[in-house]
Design a protein around this nucleic acid. Structure first.
Lengths: 226, 226
DNA sequence: GTGGCACTACTGGTCCAACAAGTTGACAAG
DNA sequence: CTTGTCAACTTGTTGGACCAGTAGTGCCAC
């Protein structure tokens, strides 16, 4: 059944998105003071509590700095925003989504290669088995893009799990969220990689053989983005 | 003057920290339903809005799933939390902070090496100049740890800026926040690296010489953690 | 004139109370 | 067994009030 849940965006979510856009696009420059919560509430025609929830999230993302009594100020996201802001960045249009995607894939290549290396060194037997199984699950012939991305995510999740590095594990979550946010339509260039069943199985075998250098090298080749 | 600003934590911040701890430590298991907002408000002896602000942030971090009408449920942070959760993870005690630090440094090594490579390829002249200047700024003799970490951050910020990758840039923010959250007392093992003025200058020169392979290799050596 | 103080007009932080909107489970009608 | 209804929850949103902290303004003593 191809039905997807109907999106019912909360008010604070909408406010968060609007302000995020303003900041990432540069229309609200760094160091600039935001309108007061009361003014924002009136401008968006929502309650102040909704604005506050959005501002709290902006603060967590590293986009604004809040101080009681003083005004809320915009931060330079280059310096203060965390990796999670990349998801917002991908959809805000502040930076061309192709640029964001390229950067994302570049990071994925670097982290993925090292994760493959570590997986070959550290993975427990059952984790190796999962990697092999995930490689086996790649479809032989053409499949729809969403399905391919799902299979690919399962494979790399298995690899990263085997690498036993919390940073890589959580980074993978953020990265895949970012890639997902950009949307499937921009992922056409990755079809060859996703569909390369043989390469994934070769990589899985290198991991199973406990050959970290080969695993890293294969992963580098596989993830290299043109 | 060694005085630091007095921390005036907001109530919602405290609630957020408490719930984060409960979840990351596993005392609140995944899939488990949280108490209702009213119950939490009563338990913490705070207003419901404060609880809501905290829950919104937990949702953004990927630690809980909120649905109107239904109950708020705990998510498996391995699967859903973003890299930013690492900062909370470092301080929550859910995982030994030494493990978090090791993982963090491992990730830093991989990302840093690739950033150095890309910086050698892509950095603009003024960015190269900043890298050289940052390497020059390393203190010749022993210095206090906080100062060393600050100098080190400036150097790597320059390198990552030159690499022109938004993912690396924002990832560096998150990583350094995580390392900072763990605290300086655990960073003794890094003193040699931080103090290695020569190695940083050699690396900076490789970048200035546009020698990506050497830059990557040097960065790998420099960032290798024992 | 000038430094210092008090006051005022903001800001964000917290709380109470109410109602709207959605979910869930029980239960009766078909 | 299926379906619809209802009641008792839940989160979502709003309004208003007051507390707490900041920052600028202007007065006053020196």
């Amino acid at each position: 059944m191809p039905f997807t849940p109907i999106a019912r965006a909360a008010v604070s979510e909408a406010v968060f998105a609007a302000l995020t856009d303003e900041i990432l696009s540069g229309r609200l420059a760094a160091e600039q003071a935001l309108p007061s919560e009361r003014e924002l509430a009136e401008a968006f025609a929502v309650n102040r509590h909704a604005v506050r929830e959005a501002l709290k999230r902006l603060q967590q993302t590293g986009l604004v700095s809040i101080s009681q009594g003083g005004r809320t100020r915009v931060l330079d996201w280059h310096q203060h925003a965390g990796l999670d802001a990349l998801v917002a960045l991908a959809t805000s249009g502040a930076v061309p989504s192709t640029k964001v995607l390229d950067d994302l894939l570049e990071m994925r290549a670097s982290v993925g290669a090292d994760a493959a290396r570590l997986c070959a060194i550290r993975a427990k037997p059952d984790q190796v088995a999962k990697v092999l199984a995930a490689a086996e699950a790649y479809p032989a012939q053409q499949s729809p893009v969403p399905e391919l991305t799902a299979v690919d995510l399962v494979f790399w999740t298995a690899v990263v799990d085997g690498a036993d590095n919390l940073g890589y594990r959580l980074g993978l979550n953020t990265l895949s969220a970012g890639i997902f946010a950009i949307g499937h339509e921009h992922l056409a260039g990755l079809l060859e990689e996703f569909a390369d069943r043989d390469a994934h199985q070769t990589l899985a075998r290198a991991i199973a053989d406990r050959d970290p250098d080969t695993a890293r090298h294969l992963a580098e080749q596989l993830l290299a983005h043109r």
